[in-house]
């Protein structure tokens, strides 16, 4: 009986923690589906009002939501593709090959993980202005990749470390090239980790704010993070519309993370954190 009381108490505590974790996202949903009159009335509405679903249609019309999300998607996809392209072969080389400068590369990858984006924003702004990369989505992809690729390489290296070398040796005797081995044997074996780093790189691009805020002034090139931040302190857009935009931007991130979070955790702990 005593034990069961402890158990139930613990379950209650778990539910409380989950409630705290989920509440702000839930509150975004509630606010987006509350009429303006009710938002500014005395007591808050605790459940979303289904009649207010029209807020989302209004958000589509009254804000450049689709343009923002489209630009964020381009940045996220570009960052993911470029990061994977740059990271896969070096991750393999770091795991399997010996070469001069290996330690230097490993150190470089580690140090760049420690460098703050915002601390490089000044020189990057200066460099980008000379190469016409300001006000360009390409520039943002290049900058985001610089901060996604070290962690992606590091996690992939950790995953490749976990594959026994014997599997590759048979293929090498058969005359398969190293690149062929990486593409046909190694990558399929680390598919879960590949999924995890894809998500990490994708959301580096999707979430990124400081570069997008600084490098882009053209309205048609604004990304969702900057668009959403532009509502702060601006009073003409109603709060239900603002939170509708916020939730539309947040939900894809949360859903994707929940789907692959198991692999992300495994990847971060084997490659990123313990490495």
């Amino acid at each position: 009986m005593n034990r069961s009381w402890a158990f139930h108490f613990r379950i209650l505590a778990v539910l409380a923690v989950l409630g705290i974790a989920a509440f702000p996202v839930y509150w975004m949903a509630v606010t987006s589906m509350t009429s303006s009159e009710e938002l500014f009335a005395g007591s808050p509405r605790l459940l979303p009002d289904p009649a207010q679903i029209g807020t989302y249609a209004r958000a589509l019309v009254s804000t450049p939501l689709l343009t923002w999300l489209g630009n964020s998607l381009i940045i996220a996809l570009g960052t993911t593709a470029l990061s994977l392209l740059l990271a896969i072969l070096p991750a393999y080389a770091l795991s399997r090959m010996s070469f001069r400068g290996k330690l230097l590369l490993a150190l470089g990858l580690f140090v760049t993980q420690m460098l703050p984006e915002a601390m490089l924003v000044v020189p990057l702004y200066d460099i980008f202005s000379r190469f016409a990369l300001l006000d360009s989505l390409t520039g943002l992809i290049l900058a985001n990749t610089a901060f996604a690729v070290p962690v992606v390489t590091w996690i992939l290296k950790g995953a490749i470390d976990g594959i026994p070398t014997e599997i590759e040796e048979a293929a090498r005797i058969d005359g398969c090239s190293r690149v062929g081995i990486v593409l046909t044997i190694v990558l399929p074996l680390i598919a879960p980790t590949l999924a995890a780093v894809t998500v990490i790189a994708f959301f580096q691009g999707w979430n990124e704010y400081v570069f997008a805020q600084t490098f882009i002034s053209d309205e048609s090139l604004k990304v969702a993070s900057v668009g959403l931040a532009s509502f702060v302190g601006e009073l003409s857009t109603p709060m239900d519309t603002v939170t509708a935009v916020g939730l539309t931007y947040t939900l894809p991130a949360v859903v994707f993370y929940l789907l692959v979070q198991r692999y992300i955790v495994a990847g971060m702990t084997s490659g990123g954190v313990k490495g």
Binding site: L18, F203, T250
Partner: peptide, 12 residues
């Protein structure tokens, strides 16, 4: 579910 805060974009 407990990872929701970490998954949400910081600006949001």
């Amino acid at each position: 579910l407990v990872t929701i805060p970490w998954a949400a974009p910081p600006v949001a």
